[in-house]
Design a protein around this nucleic acid. Structure first.
Length: 264
DNA sequence: ATCGGTACCTGCACGC
DNA sequence: TGCGTGCAGGTACCGA
């Protein structure tokens, strides 16, 4: 489900929990809980306040009173829900004085992890796409030798871009998903950089994309899917030239593009 | 050191 | 109604 704009929207919707104390934590599914005994972790979290909740790419990191970090990743279908009733796919329940926060995830690709130090896998991520300077972005394109779609999905390149926003940005920049990164010229790299910034900014403003079931912590869907020009629009006419949108597989992921606007 | 491919898991839409 | 297939916002890990 969630790429940078969706995770950003979720983080904003749980902002009221900042400074609040965890009265109880319950873990029902050990698959999503990384490295740690559920009861020990519940004990470690109990009566501690959330000092800050921040997004790093697609990761949500809460720094805890008394030290340590609670890291949440939503995977494909994960949700954080305030004031919802627990269900079949509820894997964790955090009780606060005035709210209950659930972690639901039908596919169980998401995760919750507690670490005393800042989480390693978050520290390893590349820069935020809305913060990286253009020169650094362009240099990284030259340094790698792979397909652009694959690099955009690589979280050590920039963090937070996923399949939807990679396809949408490539369309706006007029770049074929299989284009080799080191052969992209500077003017094209500039278009791509601008397209990534624009598409992410617009998507955040729209509350993200709700493809099948994404909602924020208050249960509100996003509406950026209305603005998708290629993602899951296979066969529909290109908004620029009417050519039918095509779907191909690049690095095991679907890629949607206009064969006329995005030549190799 | 970088890469591409595969595994992880459930649910849904589709054709038969 | 059921069954098989393919597809779905993700990352981690493996071997080349």
């Amino acid at each position: 489900m969630p790429e940078l704009p969706e995770v950003e929207t979720v983080v904003r919707s749980i902002a009221p929990l900042t400074g609040e104390r965890i009265l109880n934590a319950e873990f029902r599914n050990l698959r999503i809980l990384r490295g740690g005994d559920p009861d020990a972790l519940a004990g470690r979290l109990r009566d501690r306040r959330l000092l800050a909740v921040q997004r790093y790419g697609k990761f949500i990191v809460a720094s805890m009173e008394g030290g340590g970090y609670l890291t949440v990743h939503l995977g494909m279908t994960g949700r954080l829900l305030l004031g919802a009733a627990p269900g079949k796919h509820t894997h964790a329940i955090f009780t606060f004085p005035r709210a209950t926060l659930l972690f639901d995830d039908s596919r169980q690709f998401g995760s919750i992890e507690f670490s005393e130090d800042f989480p390693r896998r978050v520290a390893r991520l590349g820069p935020e796409p809305l913060e990286i300077p253009f020169d650094e972005f362009a240099a990284a394109l030259q340094r790698h030798k792979t397909r652009i779609k694959s690099l955009l999905l690589n979280q050590t390149f920039v963090r937070g871009v996923g399949n939807i926003y990679a396809d949408e940005a490539l369309f706006r920049a007029g770049i074929h998903p299989q284009a080799l990164t080191h052969r992209i010229r500077r003017d094209r790299a500039r278009k791509l950089y601008d397209a990534i910034v624009a598409v992410l900014t617009e998507a955040i403003a729209a509350g993200g994309s709700s493809i099948s079931d994404y909602v924020d912590a208050e249960g509100r869907p996003g509406f950026f899917q209305i603005s998708h020009r290629v993602y899951q629009r296979t066969g529909e006419p290109c908004t620029a030239c009417q050519t039918p949108i095509r779907r191909i597989v690049v690095t095991q992921r679907s890629s949607h593009f206009c064969p006329r606007c995005q030549r190799r």
